[in-house]
């Protein structure tokens, strides 16, 4: 594993009346795409927020680039880690370009307008997300996929070496989801960025991530390279469903297929799922 960039050390965190993690230790390597996966309510988003200093820890600490998170200034942190939440909002009448410019907040000098560096960063972000043509469009007029790309552009304009994404493919249809993920892939491969992404769809995680962390009920159930983590045994433990792991027809990445045994849709052919599972093992 490459050198860790972010480390959570014995972190205890949760909400008012519920502890989600009791002593979590986790490292995020530099320059890779790490996907955080797990069932609903397993705390994947909480971990992401904790690593960005938004979710406070009641014990333990988060270390970013060899310095505890508490010692980072708000703007310094923003220049290092950008993050896109699940439901970002901005006024409907705001234009895409103005939204992207908000990503420059931590870089701007007081009482000065946007300088050349800011404009370059904004243009680069718009180009990378293919939003140049829509730069002057109000947010209200964008489709779901376009809006998501606009927000990604804002995050890119922050020009931070680390990017956190919380379920960026939620509410997107499959083609927009894939184009978003390929953008994420590009950011890591061509931009040399460290990306941490929360995804609930394991197959999407497999296509975008180098490493996967699987959470179950407040603990790390498995972590490591995609192929090592996505085994039918791990998935059955974490999600409590029978499943098969195949190889994608278009690459050698794993493809997770949940089996229908429990739903019992295969009425007249009760043994089919079991047979399939056997065949695949």
């Amino acid at each position: 594993m490459p050198e860790p960039l972010i480390t959570i050390d014995a972190g205890i965190m949760g909400y008012r009346d519920m502890t989600v993690f009791n002593g979590l230790t986790l490292s995020i390597p530099k320059g890779e795409v790490t996907a955080l996966c797990g069932p609903n309510g397993c705390g994947k988003s909480t971990v992401l927020k904790a690593m960005r200093g938004i979710q406070p820890l009641s014990a333990g600490e988060v270390i970013l680039d060899a310095m505890p998170l508490g010692q980072w200034s708000a703007k310094g942190l923003a220049r290092t880690v950008a993050m896109l939440g699940q439901t970002p909002t901005a006024p409907e009448e705001m234009r895409v370009r103005d939204l992207v410019a908000l990503g420059r907040y931590a870089h701007r000098k007081p009482f000065a307008g946007l300088d050349i560096g800011d404009h370059t960063a904004i243009d680069t972000a718009l180009r990378a997300t293919t939003m140049v043509a829509l730069a002057e469009t109000p947010l209200a007029n964008l489709s779901g996929g376009q809006a998501q790309r606009a927000w990604l552009a804002m995050v890119l304009a922050q020009q931070s070496p680390v990017i956190f994404l919380d379920e960026p493919t939620n509410h997107l249809d499959i083609s927009h989801a894939l184009s978003t993920l390929s953008l994420v892939r590009q950011m890591a491969r061509n931009g040399g960025k460290t990306v941490v992404i929360v995804l609930h769809d394991l197959n999407m995680a497999a296509t975008v991530a180098d490493r996967i962390v699987l959470f179950k009920s407040g603990q790390v159930a498995a972590e490591g390279p995609v192929k090592e983590v996505l085994t039918s045994q791990n998935i059955e433990t974490v999600f409590d469903i029978p499943c098969a792991v195949m190889t994608r027809p278009d690459s050698n990445l794993p493809l997770v297929v949940p089996l229908l045994g429990r739903i019992g849709k295969s009425e007249g052919n009760t043994n089919l799922s079991a047979q399939k599972a056997d065949a695949l093992e």
Binding site: R52, A82, L84, Y105, R108, W151
Partner: peptide, 24 residues
């Protein structure tokens, strides 16, 4: 007021986005 202008612009974003772009 003058000092608040830029932070107020940033507050157009939701709290999480505003924070992650560097606003206290």
């Amino acid at each position: 007021l003058v000092a608040l202008i830029r932070p107020l612009d940033q507050l157009h974003l939701d709290d999480l986005s505003a924070r992650t772009t560097g606003l206290s």
